[in-house]
Design a protein around this nucleic acid. Structure first.
Lengths: 345, 345
DNA sequence: CTGAAAGCGCTTACAG
DNA sequence: CTGAAAGCGCTTACAG
């Protein structure tokens, strides 16, 4: 019932090899022959069988995306970017949730890779730094790309953005509004981006000649709850900061909730800045000023590194490339000049 | 380099057919033979080549998920459920974003299906009701499952939940708290669930002998903005309702933002209820009372209908099954008994 | 510029 | 209970 390469060859009056040549854009086919083949292909609505092709070429045209990330917005957006690039190249994306750092991770990951025989794997944080996963990939000869890895950048091609620079610019935004007493809530200590954002904040404060009081910096964990609790400490008495920069939006939302509970008016009594541009950041009142990461583009870039073969070459010893993508600071309603009363100086 | 069925057969001293029998759990193999084969399989770390298997069986072990949904939480959660079921059965999921109702949709969808040769497709709303997509699927003989379709339930197996019943119970929750003047914000008129939730609300009010004033029911569109605007109208003067039931969380968040702007205390001055249990609903203050859909389970059930062959049988004329899954009403901080002052009666 | 043969690694009838 | 042969639909050398 389904039409095969033999049907096309018969209809065009050529051998199947010639049909194969035309379909794969190989040289050495006369224009006239090519036209005859394409006419037959279109008339019969022929599509090559992907399994047969994979079997013969040992390529699957499949890319796996390893995820272990609670942010659905991040995951979806990244996926969409990767899929868009895949589609251009005739690839498909299969999503594989895994538990990074889990007990028997190797026993889960190894069959996954050997069963599927994907042409490449994309590792998103925190899988990007999972030693077990990377070891299995190397052993099985599977090309891979890392997104925003924390360490060993040469280990594989990577895609990332400049977290330090972005935090620097968000801090500049607050300083330019007139804030000088700015508190900072750090992210999860295990997460590479957390350190970089913290560094960017400190650099901006130092460059502006502003002091960072130790009690103005709190350890958060990228969760709503941790933001809520850090804000409780920071807003305990009247000598509070005029602005809080939480190093992700979930924590910024926690700060906002605590500010509401304390009866503080945002942004008049307190400015709040976040990072990530999660959907929730723009469905609260006031909307949270934040930093948008190019997540869609990162997904596309990652897929591209596999499709073009850069990931495979890196596996074979070529130097690993690194793609740095742009961010955007998005000032919204939650940041404004400080009220004088709030900051007696 | 990679180990094949021939290597296993040689190592076990049997024919490849016997290896195939063991791996596919076919009967008529002596226990002793089976053991010898499995020993060889494990020693060699053998995994069948999926492309070869697909070519021989004409099955791809691949399920496509068609999505066109702005809610990242919904998409991710659904995916995770579908993937979990796929993994048990050795299937994989490929995600295909499409634009339901787009101009040249058929030209996009047809090659997608014929290129990939998936064993089945899962249609999530609003693709569940896309006539063009379903036509292509029928023509190509591709089994499919519909999630929460609005019309023609017999057309294919479907998975859904009882939206009317859930809205009924959320309304009961408000009534039992003591509310009688309850406003309702409808969802997008094109969306099947919107109508059902509205019906559930009205039924609960009627069963409790409560009146629904026409000016207490507003047309929303499932967006934050529409909730914000409907709330503006509902809260325009002091004769406001004591509770607002928005038929999804994004709109409920809009109501909350407007309540904050108006200086209303939630829940003391106004109770707010939503629907969906989006992540944002629990990272605002106060947390929104809502209804949790079994989205993960719906994903798993949908994959199951394809894996077990129910979708294919339906394509061949068997009656389409329908799976109804359970919901849960989640009372949280945003709903409480009405303050007497707010409801002078 | 074009084609006949062999092979990719499995499974499906068919024998015995 | 087990196996030899053929075939799934392509592509990869190899000829000419």
């Amino acid at each position: 019932m389904p039409v095969t390469i033999n049907d096309v060859a018969a209809a065009a009056g050529v051998s199947i090899k010639t049909v194969s040549r035309v379909l794969n854009h190989e040289p050495n086919v006369r224009t006239k022959t090519r036209d005859r083949v394409m006419t037959a292909v279109n008339a019969l609505h022929y599509r090559p069988n992907p399994s047969a092709r994979s079997l013969a070429t040992a390529r699957s045209l499949l890319i796996a995306l390893f995820i272990d990330n609670p942010s659905t917005a991040y995951v979806t957006e990244f996926q969409l970017g990767a899929i868009a690039r895949c589609r251009e190249a005739g690839f498909h994306l299969t999503v594989e949730p895994i538990e990074s750092g889990a007990e028997k991770l190797e026993e889960v990951v190894r069959p996954m890779i050997t069963n599927l025989r994907v042409d490449g794997v994309i590792l998103t944080p925190p899988v990007s730094d999972d030693a077990v996963v990377m070891q299995v990939l190397k052993q099985t000869g599977t090309p891979f790309v890392r997104i925003a890895p924390e360490s060993e950048p040469q280990r594989a091609p990577e895609v990332h953005m400049d977290d330090a620079r972005a935090a620097y610019e968000m801090t500049r935004h607050l300083i330019e509004l007139g804030h000088s007493d700015i508190a900072f809530i750090m992210g999860h200590p295990q997460h590479g981006a957390a350190r970089l954002r913290h560094e960017g904040f400190r650099q901006a404060m130092a460059d502006a000649g502003l002091e960072v009081r130790p009690d103005r910096v709190k350890q958060g964990y990228f969760s709503f709850k941790s933001g809520f609790e850090c804000a409780e400490a920071l807003l305990a008495d009247d000598a509070r900061p005029s602005a809080i920069f939480a190093s992700n939006d979930d924590m910024a939302l926690g700060v906002l909730a605590m500010a509401h509970r304390r009866g503080l008016n945002v942004p008049d009594d307190l400015s709040i800045a976040g990072f990530d541009d999660t959907p929730a950041a723009s469905v609260v009142w006031p909307q949270i000023s934040t930093v948008r990461q190019p997540i869609f583009d990162m997904g596309a870039a990652a897929a591209d590194l596999i499709i073009t073969g850069a990931a495979r070459r890196a596996l074979n010893g070529a130097p690993a490339t690194s793609q740095l993508l742009d961010f955007r600071v998005l000032p919204r309603e939650s940041t404004a000049p400080p009220a004088k009363a709030a900051n007696p100086s």
